[in-house]
Design a protein around this nucleic acid. Structure first.
Length: 605
RNA sequence: CGGGGUGUAGCGCAGUUUGGUAGCGCGUUUGACUGGGGGUCAAAAGGUCGUGGGUUCAAAUCCCGCCACCCCGACCA
């Protein structure tokens, strides 16, 4: 399209009528062997992306158009939520991370480059530090707050295992927003901004046509439900989410609470005499169970954690042993909370061994044998009956473990022994929010995450303002992310069929594809394209000299919502063939004069 | 980081066991016929066989090292 001949101070979008022959859409008949998930296969096959390396992709013209549309929706909603766009460097001097120690904590996930002088820069994986630094340099008074800033930018994370095409990349496009406050509550406070962001995110993902679930995620330092994840419901998702069908409660598996479960008294009688069994060279609990002829749900799994930072409940303790059923998974966050500690870690094997833990064969009895050990017992293992357990001795387990007989008096000392929910929730567990309701599970792709940061970064980096009483106050922050490139792939996970992608109109690369069957149809195609463009449609004309079958297959593959075919049959009655991509019906003839209205209707405009 | 697997033309693969002229399908180019759901015929272009070394008269093939990529797991503000 020719540019406007006169320079105008107001930029307007020129009409979009693109020719297939003049863009780059390298569709493929066969999917590359490396791709497995639907979005990965289709993005490659339909010519949206090309892989350059593990987790590194070219965005070809179609992908770039979709990304731009998602980014536009994000910008509109961020702007409406009172956030202002910035663009910070992707290349960040490593010194920026010294105060927050994330150069260490982030570890290998951080990409690093060095300049000619040997100075090291990190490629930004997220931007809490640089944004805090930027605000620190320009905000000094409470009168300048609250403030909300966002950017859309390429991020870099050296993922241990990139996978599934755009769903987990090492280089990806993200929107990250940060808000700054002097208070948590009240007008201008963090909670208000958080709620606005929450609403903006709902708008963004709804407008993108995504089917999503908002789940509670791990709590921030402020407590309560201080973090939410926006999960696109898809089988290929990496995250497990749990929902209560009655109350609407939803959470990710790390966070999900479990309702009241039956529990034992720790007073039950033994099921038999404690018997030691030699179990050599068995790698896991399943193998041990098979060898001992004990089902995993009658085995005790005792996992040792070390307290890294003490909290109110963990004084005097060094180790925490969490005991769950053999077929259950220990939840580190719940262990931390139940232990009353601020930070824990899976016990380093070497140190745990020298303290007296027979790693791999630990039993709850270690609460008596290793000083400074706290025992957390999950309700599901707190009862009587038969239990098998480690024996605190390499290559040996015991049968007929009994709480009272084996552990004894310490069971009654709440400083040392607690009954607590310390495992991951499972489908069928009681809901924490509705009586008699049971949790159900689903898979999700995390496309958004909002988080109340509190003062973690502002305190470490010294971001303060003077308040109305001339007191220095540490600024309170929130951060909010959207995976833009991941959202594109997520949409395909939800919107595809055997023939290809089926885009929702708001983020489709084009609204209408005009397929010509003969070269002499181009005049009609261009005239119709201009009419559609004038009505606001973005049009792709497939002008290639290909056989009709090829063009139909490609049109379906790339997933443009409305297809118009120009061919002799319909032209004879001054009409074109019209077919929405998502419709299973045969194309219908639409008179030339009604095409634009019909297209707008099909697009939901 | 642990386990499994793969590197041969733009894509999908065979050839490797048993060393001896690098092949097939799709795609691409040219021409003809064709023309409504991935056409037919004819001709053609395109490959340091991931990479470095070794063995051998001779290596895609055997040996050693390295690299890249995929899948499962661990990990994932």
């Amino acid at each position: 399209m020719a540019p406007p001949s006169q320079a105008s101070p107001f930029l307007k979008n020129p009409p979009v009528i693109h020719l297939w022959s003049q863009t780059l859409i390298p569709t493929m008949r066969e999917a590359p062997a490396e791709a497995e998930t639907p979005s990965h296969v289709l993005l490659l096959r339909a010519g949206y992306v090309r892989k350059l390396g593990a987790g590194i992709y070219d965005y070809l013209p179609l992908a770039q158009r979709v990304l731009t549309k998602i980014a536009t929706i994000v910008r509109q909603e961020m702007d409406a939520a009172g956030s202002r766009e910035v663009l910070l460097p992707a290349m960040l001097p490593i010194e920026l991370y010294k105060d927050t120690r994330r150069d260490v904590d982030y570890g290998d996930l951080l990409f690093k480059v060095s300049d000619r002088k040997g100075a090291v820069c990190a490629l930004g994986p997220t931007h809490e530090e640089p944004i805090t630094e930027a605000v620190k340099g320009s905000v000094t008074s409470y009168k300048q707050l609250p403030l909300s800033l966002y950017q859309i930018q390429t991020k870099f994370r050296d993922e241990a295992r990139p996978r599934a095409g755009l769903l987990r990349c090492r280089e990806f496009i993200m929107k990250d927003a940060y808000t700054f406050h002097t208070s948590v509550e009240g007008v201008g406070g963090l909670n208000e901004a958080y709620d606005r962001m929450y609403a903006a995110y709902v708008n963004v993902f709804t407008r993108c046509g995504l089917d999503f679930t908002v789940v509670e995620a791990e709590s921030g330092p402020i407590g309560g439900s201080a973090s939410h994840e926006f999960m696109v419901n898809a089988e290929s998702g990496e995250d497990t989410i749990l929902k209560c069908p009655v109350s609407g409660y939803a959470a990710n598996v790390e966070k999900c609470e479990i309702g009241e479960r039956p529990r034992g008294t720790l007073q039950e009688a033994p099921s038999g005499e404690l018997t030691e069994v030699h179990t050599p060279n068995l790698p896991g609990i399943d193998e041990v169970g098979k060898f001992m002829k004990v089902k995993p749900d009658r085995m005790l799994k005792s996992i040792v954690f070390r307290i890294v930072e003490h909290g109110e409940g963990s004084a005097g303790m060094t180790w925490v042993v969490a005991v769950v059923r053999g077929d259950h998974d220990v939840n580190e966050g719940k262990v931390k909370t139940a232990a009353g500690a601020k930070k824990i870690e899976l016990a380093p094997e070497k140190e745990a061994r020298s303290a007296g833990f027979a790693i791999g064969y630990v039993s709850p009895k270690t609460v008596n044998s290793v000083p400074g050990t706290m025992l957390l017992i999950d309700p599901d293992v707190s009862g009587g009956g038969f239990w098998a357990s480690g024996s605190d001795k390499a290559d040996h387990h015991v049968k007929h473990f009994n709480w009272r007989r084996e552990v004894g008096a310490k069971l009654d000392d709440p400083r040392y022994v607690k009954l607590a929910d310390v495992r991951n929730a499972l489908a069928g567990d009681p809901s924490p929010r509705a009586k008699d309701a049971k949790l159900v599970t689903g898979r999700g792709i995390e496309v958004g995450h909002i988080f109340k940061l509190g003062t973690k970064y502002s305190e470490a980096m010294g971001l303060t303002v003077l308040d109305e009483t001339q007191q220095r106050r540490t600024v309170i922050m929130g951060c909010y992310g959207i995976g833009v490139s991941r959202a594109m792939a997520s949409s395909i996970e939800q919107n595809h069929d055997a023939d290809g992608i089926v885009w929702p109109a708001p983020i489709a690369p084009y609204h209408v594809i005009i397929t010509t069957l003969k070269a002499e149809h181009m005049t009609v195609a261009e005239k119709l394209g201009a009419e559609l463009a004038a009505a606001g449609c973005e049009v792709l004309i497939d002008d290639r000299d290909e056989r009709p079958g090829v063009k139909f297959k490609d049109a379906d593959l790339i997933g443009v919502p409305v297809r118009i075919v120009i061919g002799d049959k319909a032209l004879a009655e001054n009409a074109v063939e019209f077919k929405p991509r998502k419709s299973k019906d045969k194309p219908v003839n639409v008179p030339m004069g009604e095409v634009v209205a019909k297209a707008l209707e099909a697009l939901g405009a």
